[in-house]
Write a protein that binds this DNA or RNA. Structure first.
Lengths: 336, 336
DNA sequence: TTGTAGGCGTTATCAA
DNA sequence: TTGATAACGCCTACAA
């Protein structure tokens, strides 16, 4: 139904009786000064009159630059990502770049498909939110020579904050609700937990593995553990605190504990991770580790662009952003 | 740093000693049958070997079709949108289209910029999530002849459900927390509220205008109203229920009421709209109107594509999706 | 300051 | 079944 055909540079040139290269020059800020002010004015007037817009594809074909960056997102439904995305957008925009997003969590081949499409669009680089470790396609990407800089949260430090907070309150038996081992955050946070426990000379309590960052998984893991404990196969009685790798897991834990008749924080303390929105509105406002969502996206974007501009070393650069403890009402002293 | 230059169709053709037309044919499903199976095999083998990928820009320049659809999002941070986006992705993918997203809530000129960029990318159509009414650029878009089909939630029906629920519980003085007048949902839901009240022969209670869909605005509006009431300028005493145009506004209302020492639902009942995620985890699980997020996105996408394919009438088609009442614990009988 | 010619990687249309 | 040629819309030397 597109009634009006797109106006091309030739149409504009013909309309003004000038050559298209003149139009071209008028449209690029870097070369505007090469033409007379009057001409510039005429061109601009005519352009907006006829509704001319540079054909991005043609321009990109000619210059070889797309000004596009591929952004791989595992799950836009997870509230961690929207702010990261905003950071990315802002970071890219500073240099006239823009993101092309691709959801990678749909079906198994989604990642491959997404990468293919983006490669076909000739994106100049990739930004990958929450990579699954050692994925084959990630390697492939590396091999194409594309940039893969990283801006990540300091997970070790975040877990240290969580554990320190609990230790300070008097806890000694602290359990970890771990995220999927296949995700970089899952592994890093678990290691962070282990290191922090060691740092305090405490025996690393049980580590419960969750297969996804979801409320259901958190609930399942904790419920299973406690019911095993009831049958004497675990010593849940000793655990007085839970450090989760993710807020959703923590929320699930909360539910499981409540179902068991345990009170938070009187019987068990719980700490989440990410400080997702609306936590303060929850039935039990969750103590959590706030990561710098926006900043992560922004820095990653800047890093990529620095690399594209050829800043030395920026390609492999990694920026670690510190986290922060936000104490709410899910943590308190252990039962006497 | 992109070390490896992109392989072109010419490289591939040279490598195989065939003409590029042959390669081109092998790459398009619609014309694969024109070449011999052996040739197809050779081409495919060589393609994956050399890492050839069609240059989308070149292809689009030649065919004039981008297979891209522009998606205008006001605020990806709002939990309503991610599921809509998923629906859009799925709807588009069925025909090989893909979305190019643009956030329109950054700065004042963001919309214009976004539309410009998308037009320059030669998207074949637009999908607009939550349009501000009568916006100039929307008109412009219409004028370019682009398709603007609509898949929306039946706001009138949703509000009717909310009001009916409260009336059934015995409420007669029902207030409305209205969204911004400039947004289509703001207006439609307010009108829906008014109509529903009229339907029950009830006087439309006060309508509080919020200038954004946020917890803060909801809190502000309700707090202001109640404090005015204290000074005798409003009759807050009579209001026993609040129908909000949005869950965030409702959550804000909850906070304001709590601050006043009012209990929900004993003193005042509150109904939200959208049924955002994690509502059941909240301190006061909110009764809300569930809209068909995913379906909205999906249907809108299909509508657009039908239009692009030239299905008659699909361009102006509007699909209305029914909502559903989800009763939780923020609504109950009015105080005696 | 403006015009000219050639090329970017594909596809479409003929011709072989 | 394959090959040749001319677009597609823009940019970049280089020439005027």
């Amino acid at each position: 139904m597109k009634t009006r055909k797109n106006v091309t540079i030739n149409d504009l040139a013909a309309h003004l009786g000038v050559h298209k290269s003149t139009i071209s020059r008028a449209m690029t800020s870097g070369r505007r000064h090469l033409i007379s002010p009057e001409m510039l004015d005429r061109v601009e007037r005519a352009a907006s009159e006829l509704g001319y817009r540079q054909n991005w594809a043609a321009s990109m074909l000619s210059t070889g630059k797309s000004k596009a960056v591929g952004v791989l997102l595992p799950d836009i439904t997870n509230p961690v990502f929207p702010p990261i995305l905003r950071g990315i957008e802002d970071g890219l925009e500073l240099d006239g770049y823009f993101p092309i997003m691709a959801d990678t969590s749909r079906h198994p081949q989604a990642v491959r498909q997404a990468v293919d499409r983006l490669l076909s669009q000739r994106v100049e680089g990739f930004l990958i939110a929450s990579a699954t470790l050692a994925d084959r396609w990630l390697e492939d990407l590396r091999n194409t020579g594309d940039l893969l800089p990283a801006a990540i949260s300091d997970d070790a430090q975040g877990m240290a904050l969580a554990v320190a907070h609990l230790v300070e309150l008097g806890h000694r038996h602290i359990m970890h609700l771990s995220g999927p081992e296949s995700l970089s955050t899952g592994l890093a946070r678990r290691n962070g937990y282990l290191a922090a426990m060691a740092h305090h000379d405490l025996p690393a309590g049980p580590v419960l593995l969750c297969h996804a960052y979801s409320i259901e998984e958190g609930e399942r893991a904790v419920a299973e553990y406690w019911s095993k404990a009831e049958r004497g196969k675990a010593e849940a009685g000793k655990v007085t605190a839970i450090v989760a790798a993710n807020d959703l897991l923590a929320l699930g834990a909360l539910q499981a504990l409540k179902a068991r008749g345990l009170c938070v924080p009187q019987d068990v303390s719980v700490v989440g991770h990410n400080d997702m929105p609306w936590l303060e509105q929850m039935a039990t406002p969750l103590t959590s580790i706030r990561i710098q969502h926006y900043e992560i996206g922004f820095r990653a974007a800047r890093l990529l662009i620095d690399g594209l501009k050829g800043a030395p070393g920026s390609a492999q650069a990694t920026v670690m952003l510190r986290s922060q403890l936000v104490v709410r009402q899910s943590t308190g002293m252990p039962p006497p």
